[in-house]
Design a protein around this nucleic acid. Sequence first.
DNA 1: GGTTAGATTTTGAATCATTCTAAACAGGGA
DNA 2: TCCCTGTTTAGAATGATTCAAAATCTAACC
Lengths: 149, 149
Amino acid sequence: MIQNLTEHDRENLQESLAKSGQKVTPQREAVFTVLLADRDHPTVDEVFNRAREVMPGLSLATVYNCLETFVGCGLVRQVNHERESTRYCPNLAPHAHFRDKETGRVHDIELPADVIKSLRSILPPGFDSEAIEISFLGRAQGGDAHPTL
Amino acid sequence: MIQNLTEHDRENLQESLAKSGQKVTPQREAVFTVLLADRDHPTVDEVFNRAREVMPGLSLATVYNCLETFVGCGLVRQVNHERESTRYCPNLAPHAHFRDKETGRVHDIELPADVIKSLRSILPPGFDSEAIEISFLGRAQGGDAHPTL
DNA sequence: GGTTAGATTTTGAATCATTCTAAACAGGGA
DNA sequence: TCCCTGTTTAGAATGATTCAAAATCTAACC
């Protein structure tokens, strides 16, 4: 059941693309819609399959292209775990990831500003960090206690 | 210039392997020696090339095997950045990684216990974490201010 | 309406790190 | 010596991702 984009999301898409001189296309809209529909950090393949349901002619390469474009204009983040397939996450707020060893599912963990600050403070002088990535590996009980948002 | 293992390192190798019922072999010793010689987080290929200098017949598959074995018995850690080749790190103390955007080099950053604790504390109840991975991305000035340990 | 330029999409081939497979090898007991 | 088991080896296979080139689309201009 893939809903259409809300007015707000569509504008967000259109503006973010415009900022880097790019346009909204039906494919990009479809891929973006899929990402927002289920925030379960899908792989490219999962996005591809879901988007196909609504746009059967869509090609895998296009999904790669769209996702790369979105990452480029800051609409989504990549999530990697070791060398497994890259996953995609439309949550823009600063957050860490928790990967469940058993299920492989990735959960978002809110990241308070003071924790970020204390992390940055461990860098010796001369190290300028633009981005921090934090991921936990372990077991999450009661899977849905903290929905995968 | 690849030195031999120190008495201490050799014992460490031998004991760690023994714990999981495995033996020291010339290949494992060579690979381990390479890892300790330059702690610059080499890729498998780099390890392979360095180890070849001292053991010309060594095969790439064996390097993969050795490194996997070492990871399995806790002698080394894998370091991943996005989907680039996996790198290997013989630093066992808890530490974060800082990846220099320009050079691609990875630096170890000491990780104080209290920072680890504050990180663990952001996990909602029900999330049990066994491992945390932290990596910074940015620019490190004066490359060797904090040697790659 | 037709034309052109530029971006976007598509298909299929290519790449590259890693894993797998099956055969050769080594070394320590029986 | 002969097994047994673990290890190494070479090469094939895998799988995610990227690339290349042709096809398509869109918007702007005439």
